[in-house]
Amino acid sequence: MEQQTTQTLYEQLGGQPAVNAAVDIFYRKVLVDNRINRFFEGVDMDQQIAKQKAFLTMVFGGPANYSGKDMRTGHARLISMGLNDSHVDAVIENLGATLTELGVAPPLIAKVAALAESVRNDVLNR
């Protein structure tokens, strides 16, 4: 019991295998979501999948080395395409739906959503 409380969010979610399980479900949702899919129409699917993995690892609280500045530069191209709060909402919604589908408990989903929220201003360069 002691051990469980010291587990990180990433560990509680299941670590790398959980990211691997979530990535296809999440990316499929994003590709068919007309509110945001235009941002993800990258030419190469394998590259996009790798980036979704980076995103999921980060919001799962896993080993990711992105600074706020990285988030700003990483999404700058998207800002010029009109990225705003509604799109962040949609991403967080798809994230929640993905985790629900995987059977993740609501309190953990809330923690993931909070982590995503915490970089909202960086992503939107505010």
Partner: peptide, 10 residues
């Protein structure tokens, strides 16, 4: 993309 959206694992 089509195969993926039809359910094939990446």
């Amino acid at each position: 993309k089509k195969l993926f959206l039809a359910g094939m694992a990446s």
